[in-house]
Each structure stands twice: as structure tokens, then as C-alpha cells.
Nucleic acid binder design. Structure first.
Lengths: 265, 265
DNA sequence: CGGGGTATTGAGCCCAATCAAACTATGTGG
DNA sequence: CCACATAGTTTGATTGGGCTCAATACCCCG
């Protein structure tokens, strides 16, 4: 199975064979295994390397002094654990694993060499960071405006599409190796309520969830109830790979209209 | 008054006189004015330049097909409007102005020249983008875990500190040229409820809001009720400028503890 | 086969939304 | 400089989505 990071970068920015080989080498040099429920990094750490996830799931999370905690992002194979290439100093959140898996470590020096002499790679990684930021914005939108049901639908759509990019879907199905409690933390719901939404989803035949396998029989339908527009994933520069025919239609057509800034909601 | 962008970058990464001069020039070459309630860019646009705000407020926002809308970020003087330096293609959200003000436009070529030959500048801008992403994460946390009252407190703390970085505070006061409706959109509340929270805040003497002037008599107190920890703003590499003595204490001390991954909430 | 983590169900409550109306600035044109 | 219009803020009454607490069922795994 191909390296998920390379596969993902490849999707949007064409990498030379040379670029690919170097990336492949950089991500296979120092690989470590991690178990379930470990912290890969903690708030306050200063990462000195780049850590792409090769397999398994992790999440960014943060907790308040009083114990309330939130999952801020899911990290899938091909994602970088570090908030980004080393310019930022202290971590402002933690990264914990959700499953066991494998993690690469690219030393700072190798990374700098790579981005310095291989602008395509640098650009691709840059872009990756920006997509992560776009996802974060979409989560903000979800939490602020979507209700519990829509939020869950939206999250499932996103995860499915992101998994598809790295080749981790089989037809309409994918692994969802995550407890309902974690999904709840990510959607800002309680476990109890998330469970209820999940049941509604099943009753509506929008989702089949059996064991750790998620099946989405009718993705466009699920996207519709989630008000999901895939543009924020920047899947590719025009068409193909998940950018469905309705993506364009989904876009809000509100360019400088008079109603651009109405009052309350 | 100094250029707010330079002032902000300067804060954390020491720029040479040469770097500063070039930045100064780049941001003063092509300056335009904007009015209140204009769209600076719309979802679907492909920005070809970098646009730092020199004065005035704007916001990133997004709306769902059914009209629900959210403010995803506030853009203050010194912030870059573009989601980031040009690698991403289509905008996945819009940017609208909240006040009148002035906007610089740095042509792509100038920008590339600047970042290419002036690594400190590139690094500083990089860092800026990462801080914006960290802010977005904190908003996710707020919307998911903080209640209405805390959310408002948290937002006011953040805005105040961010304004302070660019020198737009006078002692405990700053301008808050924003309607309650916008604050509501940013906190995921209705205008009505936001107003009620604001009154509670006033009653508790945590905030004085008169006209468009916000005064925070006791910032540490406000930060305490907001569960506000300034680390995510990455104000500086150790100490000074807002990194107060209690910042360290605020940090969650949860490194690889057994309770790192408890069940629900 | 027991046990801990996980999922499910039920009943009651509360925070924030909704609806509706009044009140207060802030303009703007006559 | 007033009168009207408009945007923004404030207040009250009511509703409801999602939370809480608590108990039960499930399922994987040692």
C-alpha cells in the first residue's frame, strides 16, 4: 500500500519521481509504532521533528482546567501531527491516539533540506497545512450553526471523503475506529445525545454502522442533510476525486448581494 | 503610527531594518480604502495578491444554503485577509468588512520575492498563518465546550490581546466597532441572548461598554471566568507582552496521565 | 465466564432559541 | 434643527434542543 502522505499530496500537486522517492525515504527512515490512547504530544511540548501518521487514527484535543475536553481535529493516515513545520514553538494543544498505528519522524534538518531544494514538496506541504486550517473553519461553522443531527452527518461526510483521498475506503464503506464518546467530543455533544442522533441516522438509512465499519449507502443524500459542501477540503484543482457534480450547486451564490450583511441570524 | 503588520511580526521574530523597510514599502505601494459592510472577497474567488489590513476591522464568514451564517474569524489591523499565501486556489469562505478602513495589496511577484530572499520575513508570515489556525482551534473549543457567558468573555479577552499586540489599546480600553449581532454570529449565539450575556458581564463589572469603546477593568478576572489561557496566541517566545505570570499556571498539566482519555465528558 | 468499556434507553430539567414588541441611538433630508 | 427612517439594543414570555442523571443491555477480550 502506498504511503498515504505521498498519495494525498500527489492528488493535487504533481510530484516528480524524485520528489516522491525523497518523501518516501524521509517517511520510512524513522518509523515508530504507537498504541491506543497514547499521547503523541502534549500541550507545552516543543516538537523538533515532523510526524506524519502512516497508519491509524489520532486526534488533536484540548482540555479546560475544569476537565471539559474537546476533540479539535481528527488525524488520519497521511496527516501531519505537528500543528505545522516547526515555526511555532510550544504546542497549544495535545495530540492523542485513537487506535494503534505507525508514525514517521522526519528530522528538522531533513525536512528543511526537502522543502528548500524541492519547491513542489514545500508547496504541497504548505497547502496541506492550509487545508487543515480550512477544515478547522468548517468545524467552527458546524459547531456554531448546525444542529446535532447535521453536525454528525457533516463529520461523517468529511471523514469519509478524507479517507477516500488516502485510499482507505472500500466502495461506500470505511473503517470508523472511534468510540461514540470521541465523536461526541468532536461535535460538542454529550455521548448520550450523539447516540440518539446516530440512531436517527440509522433509522433514516443514511448510515450503516456495524462494528467499526461505517457504510454510507447514499453519500449525496447524507451530504444534503449535512449541508455539506466539499469545497473546503480543496480536494483537487477542478473536478474528479470526490468533487461531485453537485459541488458547484452547493456553493453559496452570494457575491456582494445586498443581503450580504443582514442583522442577527 | 507604525504599520500594524510590521509591528506584529516584529513582536516575535526580530526583523532587520532592511526587512522592515521592504515590508513597509510592499504594504504602502498599493493601498485602497474600503467602506463598512463590503465584501473584500467572496467564496469562490481566487486571490492573486496578498491583502494585509492596515486599519479597520473585517471578518471571515460563511453561510449555509438556508441562510444561517457564522463569523469564523475577526480580522484586525495587521492581519492578512487571504486565507494564506496563494497556494490554495479557490476561497472556501468570504471576507467582509465591519468598519471602513484601508487595505494593502501585495502583488504575488513582490510577495514571492520578499519571502524568497528574506527568510525572516517568510518565517514571520508563516508563523502568522499558524497563529490564525491556533485561534481557529480555540474557537472550536469555545463553541464546543464553553457556555454562552464564557464564550463571550473569551472572545473579548482574545480581541483585546490581539489589539494590544498591534498597539490599538489605550490602557484597559480599546475600540470595539462591532454590532452585538456580529458578536453573536461569532459566538454561535442569537443576538438576543448575546445581549443578555453582555448585561450580565456589565452587572459583574467585568466589562464596561460605552458607545464603541470597550473597557476591561480587570483583565485577569475576565480571563479567569473565560478559562482563558493566552498560550494559543503565541504572543512571544517566553515572557513579556501579555504572557502574564499566570499563563503557566493556566496550562493543563496532563501529560500522558492515565486519565488522558476518559469516556464521555 | 466474568468484567470493563461501550452502547442504549428513559425521565426530567435547563440553557439558549424564538417570537414579539418597545426603546434608543444614529443618521438624513427637508 | 426637527421629523422621519433605519439600524441597533433591550425587555418579556414561551418553547425546545440537547444535557443530566441513572439504569440497563451489550460486546469484546482475557
Amino acid at each position: 500500500m502506498a504511503n498515504p502522505l505521498i498519495r494525498k499530496l500527489q492528488q493535487v500537486i504533481r510530484l516528480s519521481a524524485d520528489d516522491q522517492r525523497l518523501l518516501e525515504q524521509a517517511t520510512s527512515e524513522r518509523v515508530t509504532r504507537f498504541g491506543q490512547r497514547e499521547d503523541l504530544m502534549s500541550e507545552g511540548d516543543e516538537p523538533r521533528e515532523i510526524h506524519p501518521i502512516l497508519s491509524g487514527w489520532a486526534c488533536r484535543y484540548k482540555q479546560l482546567e475544569d476537565g471539559r475536553r474537546a476533540v479539535l481535529a481528527f488525524l488520519l493516515p497521511g496527516d501531519l501531527c505537528d500543528p505545522s513545520p516547526l515555526v511555532l514553538g510550544e504546542m497549544d494543544h495535545s495530540v492523542g491516539t485513537l487506535t494503534s498505528g505507525t508514525l514517521a519522524a522526519i528530522p528538522r534538518a531533513v525536512f528543511e533540506e526537502l522543502t528548500f531544494h524541492h519547491p513542489r514538496v514545500a508547496q504541497a506541504l504548505w497547502r496541506e497545512a492550509l487545508v487543515q486550517a480550512a477544515i478547522q473553519r468548517e468545524w467552527t461553522l458546524s459547531l456554531g450553526q448546525r444542529n446535532a443531527y447535521e453536525r454528525l452527518c457533516h463529520l461523517l461526510c468529511e471523514l469519509f471523503l478524507r479517507l477516500r483521498i488516502v485510499g482507505l475506503t472500500q466502495g461506500p464503506s470505511c473503517e470508523l475506529p472511534v468510540t461514540q464518546a470521541k465523536l461526541a467530543e468532536a461535535t460538542g455533544l454529550t455521548g448520550v445525545h450523539l447516540n440518539r442522533m446516530l440512531q436517527e441516522l440509522r433509522a433514516a438509512n443514511l448510515v450503516v454502522l456495524k462494528g467499526k465499519t461505517l457504510t454510507i449507502p447514499d453519500l449525496p443524500a447524507l451530504m444534503a442533510v449535512a449541508l455539506f459542501s466539499p469545497n473546503y477540503l480543496h480536494l483537487t484543482r477542478e473536478g474528479s476525486a470526490g468533487e461531485s457534480h453537485e459541488a458547484a450547486a452547493h456553493r453559496v451564490s452570494n457575491h456582494r448581494s445586498d443581503s450580504a450583511h443582514p442583522g442577527g441570524r
